[in-house]
Design a protein around this nucleic acid. Structure first.
Lengths: 333, 333
DNA sequence: TTGTAGGCGTTATCAG
DNA sequence: CTGATAACGCCTACAA
């Protein structure tokens, strides 16, 4: 079943069929209807390979995401897909994991599939060591690369970020204003957005207290038990803290579990602020105050920027989305 | 940059280059090394379109998933992707939403991309009205279709399911054995797996009590507030229940929130069992007893079945994975 | 072991 | 408005 079958049955040339398929106006209405009818009758669909061979494009965007079971990333992917669809683009999704080698492999795999652009979802794609980002910059030589929550100032790379610095700055400032001085900061990685968040926290503390206690800045694996146990150890080690700011809701939940073990009242003895405003924040008890980073807006903005890039319009290299605090019951705001 | 450039530079024919690319043994080691070196030097990658045009395959599997922000589905997609990768296949992911029309569109879109098979993740793809499943059966005429948590007995359709009937039967039986007779059953839809779950519940109740009180079977949208409010309304309407079996963890969390409002002790006044053993079950307080439906096993089994199908082996039309109860603190087991 | 040539299904350029 | 024909890049008989 190909264009020849259609042309034969419709008694026209394949060129005419091709014109009808592609909405070329240089076809008489009558011929067009005839061809359309035959295509319908035969259930004909153009072969994407043959088409791609000529056009060298499949109208497809590659999406990379380190872990689609991370609720924040999953949401972002969902919205991005939806927006791409609206614009007539399909997408490949790759769940790469966090290993650099894998990320590189998947990226070249996508390029080898001749995608029209690549979207990297989540700050996990930017390595601390700048040399390790070379593969992204190289890819941008072939197709536009969109970065969500990461920043790389290079040609053909476009970044959309939420203002993580402002978010943790505000969160810390609110706690400090209540007279809470020992704020424990829990982070998982020093990615670009991880660094932004930490800087926001430090700046707020600096502004109010003129110095930062590095003991209050702790790295922790991203699961409930690890966070809970880390806090228990720190507390037993003599560290004093009256509040926790966590860079992910799941760590915030860990802090709640810690409070439960130690029989601390929330927020009286311990205030807790999570990040991402995910479902987890509503599930726990008490419900978690959390930074809402507007993942839907972020996704929509990314896709709309990409569409303009593909349309050869001039667009800014960096777009920042503000975020705000969703206040629930783990803080006394 | 194409096969001709390579052949020219390596001073061999394109056929030889093609042989090297495809690992054909009929190439002298010396020639092979020369070609390999040139390919490396030029950074050559075969064009997938040209390749697909001849072979009519891209080594790509289409995955459809109603909502990748649903934790259960997101997990399944993650594992499926991983397994496909291991087997040398790439994948398209489509997040279709729940509207029939969209599902149909995405399916034909995937077929038009010439995927080698299609995996439908989640019971959300089987409609109650059998006629509405015709598009799936039709697709199976072109490529193998894998169904996860759905069952359709048709040629070229292969189903992998968790034993939902057994799961709810066991859950209900355990509660009944404790003397709890009024078990409220919360479901979200009458999909295939939804029906299986309900039948399991009913069978257990029938066996013990010889009759089922239909008032105890309630449909509820899949979010915390809806579940909480529904239970509040039912309770105020005079309905008595000492336990809740929910077909999703999120509804179980809703039940916990309900108990909190009514100041009911868990599990003393109200036992609750969730489903999927998701992260949510660990986040809430008390932590939720939940059916673990082994999503990783389910995914692995699906992909391995698919690989055998693509390898033209004879495989069963239906594979069932057993599941078990992860007992936490919302029950007194 | 290597090379030649035909075919895969479209699109696009010309010529009519 | 329509048709013939040359790309597009690869694979694979078949021939040497």
């Amino acid at each position: 079943m190909n264009i020849y079958d259609v042309s034969e049955r419709a008694r026209v040339s394949i060129a005419t069929v091709s014109r009808v398929i592609n909405g070329n106006p240089n076809v008489s209405e009558k011929t067009k209807q005839k061809v359309l009818a035959v295509m319908e009758e035969l259930g004909y669909t153009p072969n994407v390979f043959a088409r791609g061979l000529g056009l060298n494009s499949m109208n497809t965007i590659g999406i990379m995401c380190a872990d689609s079971s991370d609720p924040f990333l999953a949401n972002a992917v969902y919205f991005i897909e939806r927006e791409l669809r609206k614009n007539g683009y399909d997408s490949f999704l790759c769940c790469t994991g966090y290993a650099l080698k894998n990320k590189q492999n998947y990226l070249s795999l996508l390029l080898s599939k001749r995608v029209d652009a690549i979207i990297l979802v989540g700050s996990g794609f930017l390595e601390f060591n700048k040399k390790d980002n070379a593969y992204i910059i190289k890819a941008a030589g072939e197709v536009p690369v969109m970065l969500i929550n990461g920043y790389l100032n290079n040609p053909n790379i476009y970044c959309t970020l939420c203002d993580d610095y402002q978010a943790t700055f505000t969160a810390a400032a609110l706690l400090l204003e209540q007279g809470i001085q020992n704020i424990l900061y829990l982070y998982t990685s020093k990615s670009y957005s991880g660094t932004q968040k930490m800087n926001g926290y430090k700046a707020a503390v600096m502004e109010k207290l003129q110095s930062v206690n590095e003991d209050l800045i702790q790295c922790c694996p991203g699961n409930i038990e690890a966070a809970r146990d880390l806090l228990l150890r720190l507390s037993e080690g003599g560290l004093k803290f009256k509040a926790v700011i966590a860079v992910e809701d799941i760590l915030g939940v860990g802090a709640i579990k810690y409070a439960k073990v130690k029989k601390l009242a929330i927020p009286k003895d311990l205030s807790i602020i999570g990040y991402n405003n995910s479902l987890l924040a509503q599930c726990c008890e008490p419900e978690l105050t959390s930074v809402d980073n507007h993942v839907e807006t972020l996704s929509i903005s990314t896709v709309s920027t990409l569409m303009r890039v593909l349309d050869c319009q001039k667009v800014p290299n960096k777009t920042t989305i503000s975020n705000d605090l969703n206040i629930r019951n783990t803080t006394n705001f």
